[in-house]
Structure formats: C-alpha cells, structure tokens
C-alpha cells in the first residue's frame, strides 16, 4: 500500500445520505478506501457505521449519493465484494456444517445451479486452514464458540476470493486471542494486495494494525491514513469532548480530558 498504487480506489463513496424516517443516519458522506489497504470505519455508537457499509454496497436504499467499487457502480460490482454482515440474522440451529458454510462462498463463482465441483475444494480447504478451522470442518455451526463462528464467516468471505473484503463488527463478542488471529489473517489478505474494510471500535487496535481510517459520526469527520485521520482534534469532533473511548485519543500525544 503505497502512493504508487495506481489502481482505482477499492471503495469510493460520494455524497451518501441515508435516513430512517426523518432522522438522517448518514449525511453527505464522502469517503475513499484506497486499494490494497486495511481500513477501519470508526465512530461512536449510532454514527451510522453499519448503515454506511450496507448503503455503500447497495443493500440499503440511499436518499442520494453514489458508491463505486473499483470504479464501477456498487450494485454491478457485488461479485467483487465479500461482505461479512453482523450475525443477528443467522439461523444457528440450521443443520449445516462448517465446511458447507464456507462452500457457500463459492456458490456464486461456481454457478448457482451446479454442484460444488471438485476443483473448488482446494479453495475451501485453504480458507478453512487460514482461519485455523480445518479440524472443525465437520461440526454443526451451533456447536462452535462465538470466536470460532466468526472464524468460519471470515473463511467464507476468503473463499469468495473477492478483491474487497468488508466486515461489520467482526470482533464483537470475540475473545482477544481470536481477535488477534483474525487480524493476522486480515493483514495477510492486505499483503496479497486485496483491500479490507472493517467496522471496529477499539481505537488502540486501529492505530496499531490498520493503514487507513474513516472517522464517522453521521457525516465523515475524517478519512485518510490512520495517523492523519485519528488526531485528537478529529476524535473530539467525532466522539465529543468527553466521549473518546478508553483514553485512546493517544496517550503519547495528549490526554483527551485536558483539552
């Protein structure tokens, strides 16, 4: 991820406005995720982070604005995106094994009306292996812990082999060890030249591990390389003076409460 990366941005949002009823959830958001970066979307609760991802991928109707994936309209480029939504809609009791869930990532590429071919197997195997779930491939999904489930969904996204990976709060309810392991995988994915966008609220992790950040509070407060975007001033603008979480405004620079 250097300035020399001449590819079009992995994800570009221009003037995106979304409202639920009268309340604007996103107002005129402009944001760019350069290709080949590990990017975080951060902001306080209710800042519209999940809404941004869904609207950007065309899964939610927007009032106005447009989104481009690799320079093409998002709706036409969904096959270039692997999206890991929040997990509330998933039916955990569904009789399905870990391996089958990961195979779902191949459905689109392999054709909806064909059997999953033998040639798809290596992709599925490799995805399972990268998240360390090979030993659990035959388990039913409800027999896994929260962290293991999240690993499976990351494996499914990996199996999609899309150049852009979008994850909505992948670390919510996940233990620290799994979080570190998942981040390692995401970093590796970035190093392969793919782009990763993650909604996250641990500013410490974002500073340490991410390249690029979008600071959001209904509108885009800042968007750019982590060091430039997550300045104490910007964080105060997004979270309010008292709200910057966990002293994460940066201990070296300036404690958030001194202002």
């Amino acid at each position: 991820m250097s300035a020399a990366d001449a590819r079009p941005p992995a994800l570009e949002v221009r003037g995106l406005t979304v409202s639920y009823g009268r309340r604007p959830v996103l107002a005129d958001v402009d944001a760019t995720v350069p290709a080949g970066t590990l990017s975080a979307v951060v902001g306080p609760n209710g800042a519209g982070k999940s809404t941004l991802l869904q609207a950007a991928l065309g899964l939610l109707p927007a009032d106005s604005g447009r989104t481009l994936v690799e320079g093409r309209p998002a709706r036409a480029a969904l096959d270039r995106v692997a999206y890991v939504p929040q997990r509330d809609a998933v039916d955990w009791d569904f009789p399905i094994t870990v391996r089958e869930v990961v195979e779902m990532g191949r459905y689109r590429a392999a054709g909806w009306f064909r059997r999953v071919r033998r040639s798809e197997r290596p992709v599925v195997d490799e995805s399972l292996d990268r998240v360390g779930m090979t030993a659990f491939a035959g388990r039913q999904i409800s027999q896994l812990s929260g962290g293991q489930r999240q690993r499976v969904f990351l494996a499914r996204a990996l199996a999609q082999q899309a150049p852009l990976l979008v994850m909505d709060e992948p670390f919510a309810g996940v233990d620290a060890r799994t979080e570190a392991a998942l981040l390692d995988v995401l970093t590796a994915v970035r190093d392969e030249g793919r782009s990763v966008v993650v909604v996250h609220h641990d500013l410490g992790t974002v500073r340490a591990r991410f390249d690029h950040a979008l600071l959001l509070n209904v509108r885009a407060v800042a968007c750019g390389p982590v060091a430039e975007a997550l300045t104490p001033a910007n964080l105060r603008r997004a979270y309010g003076a008292a709200g910057v979480p966990g002293g994460a405004a940066g201990r070296e620079e300036e404690p958030a409460w001194t202002r």
């Binding site: 402009d30 509108r219 968007c223 975007a229 910007n234």
Partner: peptide, 8 residues
C-alpha cells in the same frame, strides 16, 4: 464537513 488526508 471536511475530509482529512486530501481524499477530497
């Protein structure tokens, strides 16, 4: 609204 990092 302003965007840091010169993205805009």
């Amino acid at each position: 609204p302003a965007v840091a990092g010169g993205a805009r």
